[in-house]
């Protein structure tokens, strides 16, 4: 089930759509070859529904967009980074549960 509330961002769009976003932004760095990334996919979509209008949920494919993950020193996926006013608030690595992701997002609210 595709979800249009999840924003798919590229390296080129990152500054504009994530750093410059007026809402806090949770970015899920993933790749098609990563099983655990696939496993948390449905949870990411649910969060996008639930935080609609309060937090922007975004995904970045690290295969197609190497610059941004490099900039943030990402060496494991899935990694989820929470941004607020362009700054990193906190991050989580690995396929964690929804409760932990909720806890992470709430740090920006």
């Amino acid at each position: 089930m595709a979800n249009d509330k999840v924003l798919h961002v590229t390296d080129d769009e990152f500054d504009n759509k994530v750093v410059g976003n007026s809402l806090p932004c949770l970015v899920d760095f993933w790749a098609p070859w990563c099983g655990p990334c696939k496993a948390i996919g449905p949870v990411i979509e649910e969060l996008a529904e639930e935080f609609d209008g309060k937090v922007q949920i975004a995904k970045m494919n690290v295969d197609d967009n190497p610059a941004t993950p490099g900039k943030f020193g990402i060496r494991a996926i899935p990694t989820l980074i929470l941004f607020k006013d362009g700054e990193v608030v906190d991050k989580i690595t690995g396929a964690v549960g929804k409760a932990q992701l909720n806890e992470l997002i709430n740090k920006a609210l």
Binding site: A31, W33, C34, G35, P36, C37, D63, G73, I74, R75, A76, I77, P78, T79, K91, T93, G94
Partner: peptide, 16 residues
């Protein structure tokens, strides 16, 4: 963890 320590070679191998 996530900055060099990994438990999933399939996930993180391509970073190395």
């Amino acid at each position: 963890t996530g900055q060099g320590v990994s438990y999933c070679a399939t996930c993180d191998g391509p970073f190395y």
